[in-house]
């Protein structure tokens, strides 16, 4: 992991309160990034915001020195971040955490399941899986039509089903409802989203092997402060989301 400066090349609102940054960054670091890893972003140099924000990596293009981040404006810090304009330098810890271990997996058809701001890391994952000739089907869920993003992007890589909680776009209901209604044949799943979604997915797909990526409030983001912990399977110890995760095999943690 390194602490380095990137430059915002392009900033865009891609859905309600949802911001995409394309960052110019040293390409040597980009080549090391695994799908599912994140960056830990310093809001600014003032003393007002003392904690960095963990943000998902949505895409990596080493040939263009580009890193794509997607985040949701939720509190004061992310709102301030969203105001940053092109050409602004931005201070990152990169790459953070462990991603989906796809290099070690022999799979033919992957099911990717994302909820809300858990969707971004699945895009880079889908791209890397396609490169390995793995068939990719994606199921993504959002609150409402205004929150939907990246459907077209996922459609270029395979089938993509969209669900909204209020039914204003795609299927009405949760990602698990889409999975119930469409008999999707796959041999491993990869999920990222809020804990209630991950619990429902793990329960629905209890006969399948899967990897999940967890969200938690973080402090240092490097494994030193013990803020972002999750109990292990038998709840006898904690794992650190930032350092041991954020991606875990479903059998590793109790959510």
């Amino acid at each position: 992991m390194q602490k380095l400066k990137a430059t915002i090349r392009h900033s865009e609102i891609i859905a309600r309160d949802t911001v995409q940054f394309d960052l110019l960054i040293d390409p040597t670091i980009l080549k090391t990034i695994q799908p599912g890893q994140f960056v830990h972003v310093n809001i600014d140099d003032s003393s007002e915001h003392m904690l960095r924000r963990p943000i998902s990596i949505a895409d990596v293009k080493p040939d263009e020195s580009l890193l794509t981040l997607i985040f949701k404006q939720f509190g004061e810090g992310t709102k301030k971040l969203a105001q940053l304009k092109a050409e602004t330098p931005i201070d990152l810890l990169i790459p953070s955490g462990n991603g989906y271990p796809i290099d070690d997996l022999a799979i033919e058809h992957a099911l990717l399941i994302g909820g809300g701001i858990g969707v971004p890391p699945l895009y880079y994952l889908a791209k890397k899986l396609k490169e390995k000739n793995v068939k990719v089907t994606t199921v993504i869920g959002f609150q409402s039509a205004d929150d939907v993003f990246y459907e077209e992007a996922f459609l270029t890589l395979g089938d993509c089903f969209v669900a909204t909680d209020d039914g204003s776009y795609g299927y009405e209901g949760f990602v698990t409802d889409v999975m119930d209604q469409n008999k999707i044949d796959f041999d491993m799943y990869f999920a990222c989203g809020p804990n209630p979604m991950l619990r429902a997915v793990k329960y629905t797909l209890s006969d399948k092997e899967g990897y999940i990526s967890l969200e938690e409030r973080m402090g240092c983001g490097i494994g030193a402060c013990y803020a972002c912990v999750v109990p292990n399977r038998d709840e006898t110890a904690y794992k650190k989301v930032c350092h041991d995760g954020p991606v875990f095999h479903t059998s590793e943690v109790s959510i």
């Binding site: 003393s47 915001h49 003392m50 509190g75 810090g77 938690e216 402090g219 912990v229 110890a237 904690y238």
Partner: peptide, 24 residues
């Protein structure tokens, strides 16, 4: 060994932060 408190364990505040790790 101490397991510490449940999460969330940290929150940012103006020019500071709150923590309740619980001596893990």
């Amino acid at each position: 060994q101490r397991l510490g408190n449940k999460t969330p364990r940290v929150a940012e505040t103006k020019s500071g932060m709150l923590n309740a790790i619980g001596l893990q």
